[in-house]
């Protein structure tokens, strides 16, 4: 019991790369820690892209299963976060291809967000921004979320969404312009 507590504490202190090494050696505690570390972040992005709670959760599950099964394919040359997001967005594309006749990323109904109650101070701006992001074309939406919400550099975004860096930048910038067009009056912007 004491030993378990010590291992758990160690795993919490590990960085992502160290966790991956432990997972490669079959350490399920390390895998649990990785799931805890990424499940909310990934779910947020997947939900905002797919706009469907169940779809996002299914893709999230497939992503973590792949992370566990394919951990030996992870190369330390990449950041763990980039690798996991790449798997997640691949899974999402694969899922959407299978569902193509009935599910479109640009035409799906909106579901209520399962988030903490919004702060009244900034709640309105967040809701407006969520709505405007939701209305973006799917490609722009993914690129914008990866850049401005998840904070990835353009090089990583290009790897995750499988496009040249220039295209990744272009998508993020077009998304920014579209958001400014819609939200300029709320966020204090002039006309470009």
């Amino acid at each position: 019991m004491r030993k378990d507590n010590r291992i758990r504490k160690d795993v919490k202190e590990c960085n992502d790369e160290e966790l991956m090494e432990l997972i490669k050696n079959g350490d399920t505690t390390a895998f649990d820690q990785m799931v805890k570390r990424y499940k909310n972040k990934l779910f947020s992005t997947l939900y905002r892209i797919t706009r469907n709670n169940d779809t996002a959760e299914d893709i999230l599950q497939e992503t973590f299963i792949k992370v566990f099964r394919k951990c030996r394919l992870y190369k330390p040359a990449y950041k763990v976060s980039t690798w996991i997001y790449t798997i997640a967005l691949n899974e999402m594309r694969s899922y959407m291809r299978k569902q193509k006749p009935t599910v479109s990323l640009d035409a799906m109904p909106t579901f209520a967000l399962t988030s903490d109650p919004p702060n009244p101070q900034d709640g309105l701006l967040k809701i407006k921004l969520e709505q405007a992001i939701e209305a973006l074309p799917a490609d722009y939406r993914s690129a914008f979320l990866l850049r401005e919400v998840d904070g990835f550099p353009y090089e990583d975004i290009a790897n995750i969404i499988k496009c040249p860096i220039g295209t990744a930048k272009s998508r993020v910038n077009r998304a920014r312009l579209m958001l400014k067009e819609k939200l300029g009056k709320f966020f204090g912007g002039g006309n470009r």
Binding site: T114, E148, G189
Partner: peptide
Amino acid sequence: EELACFKNIRTTAHTLDELKPSDYFE
């Protein structure tokens, strides 16, 4: 103003609520 707008959008995007999968996910 234009730069301020882009900055405000970015700041708000950074603070968007983190969403959670269902309690039974794990």
